[in-house]
Design a protein around this nucleic acid. Structure first.
Lengths: 193, 193
DNA sequence: AAAATAACGTACTGATCGGTATGTTATTTG
DNA sequence: CAAATAACATACCGATCAGTACGTTATTTT
């Protein structure tokens, strides 16, 4: 041990996450990163490795946080149908809140890097699979409570809902009319019965 | 008039389209483009303008071709349900065919550029809206023929299907298990009744 | 207090980026 | 045939890229 770090690793990683989330991997330069993170270039390399490793750390932080938030939101509502509707409506509200349309960091990465980098193919796939399990558990809770019909194939339904969520998140980037989104949501949630 | 072009504009634009489709805007360099298009840098600039204008031309070519193909595919099957299933299965088969997972050029652009460039926000949105109209017309054909229930809200249903198609196209980039995709497809198509 | 060590800031590296100036070659028009 | 013109190839531009060498400063350990 010698001199102590003058920055908080979690804090600067959070800053890097925000930037990568907003701009993607290629469009974010090291200069952008040092400016936003508030630390110098060598500090980044000593703490996180190269640009791609930093990106990976940022994405891992994102997926963990996101999965946890999602689980909490879905569990907080006793009605499964309401839980899903609120969840989807929050995603929509986030995009229409005026700020830059960041969408989902994991989905952005799935599009930009997964096809050319196996590490990110796996990382993004596993996150989506994990989310679909959270959906599935929520659906199963609805079946247990009698709110949903027992004949429903919870797993298949969860996977279809995740796919719709991805589609919704992506198309929101093109800022479609509100009616498009509302229609999509109504039809998609009609699968829960 | 003077010396005549030694290259075919359509042909080199097609090459540029393939490259942008595969790698995206930022990750494609002018050197990549000259190599694949087989023409020199100044030739690109005189024929198409700068990199972003070339990208736009490539995307426009893609969306026109794609919309036309889609219309043809959906119209070629007398059964609307079968038409949709075949259409979705072709999208899936394309991604599992072994080659590089390019997905949909328009969706890729929606993720990479739409949030930071209004021109592409509009261009990608209008393409998706156009596709949803094609879906809607197909659903209406099914209602007319009696294959689908008349109570269906054709427009809302079409929009939900487009959203699912986007989600499916995106998640295919992470190469999920075949069962995930099959489940999603079955549940999604169950909306057509 | 002295030696060791790790984080710091500065300044630099070669490579590559998008874009262009310039001279040459080929075709058209007068 | 000669003048005009546009597409060609080469070679270059300044800017920026990701990544690092190196000397300084601060903290820990002996």
């Amino acid at each position: 041990m010698a001199r102590t770090r003058e920055f908080d690793e979690e804090q600067v990683l959070h800053a890097a996450m925000q930037l990568f989330w907003e701009k993607g991997y290629e469009a974010t330069s090291l200069s952008d990163l040092t400016a936003r993170m508030g630390i110098t270039r060598p500090s980044i390399y000593s703490a996180f490795g190269d640009k791609k490793e930093l990106f990976e750390a940022a994405l891992r932080k994102y997926t963990m946080t996101r999965a946890s938030e999602m689980r909490t939101k879905l569990q907080s509502n006793p009605s499964v149908k309401e839980a899903f509707r609120t969840f989807f409506e929050d995603v929509i509200a986030e995009e229409y809140s005026g700020g830059p349309s960041r969408g989902c960091f994991c989905i952005n990465t799935m599009v930009e890097l997964a096809p050319h980098d196996e590490k990110f193919e796996i990382l993004t796939r596993e996150h989506q699979m994990y989310l679909s399990v959270i959906f599935q558990e929520t659906i199963e809770r609805g079946i247990q409570s009698g709110e949903l019909k027992a004949v429903a194939d919870a797993k298949a339904l969860a996977q279809a809902l995740i796919t719709s969520l991805i589609g919704l998140t992506v198309i929101l980037k093109s800022r479609p009319q509100r009616a498009f989104v509302d229609n999509t949501l109504d039809v998609t949630l009609s699968l829960l019965k």
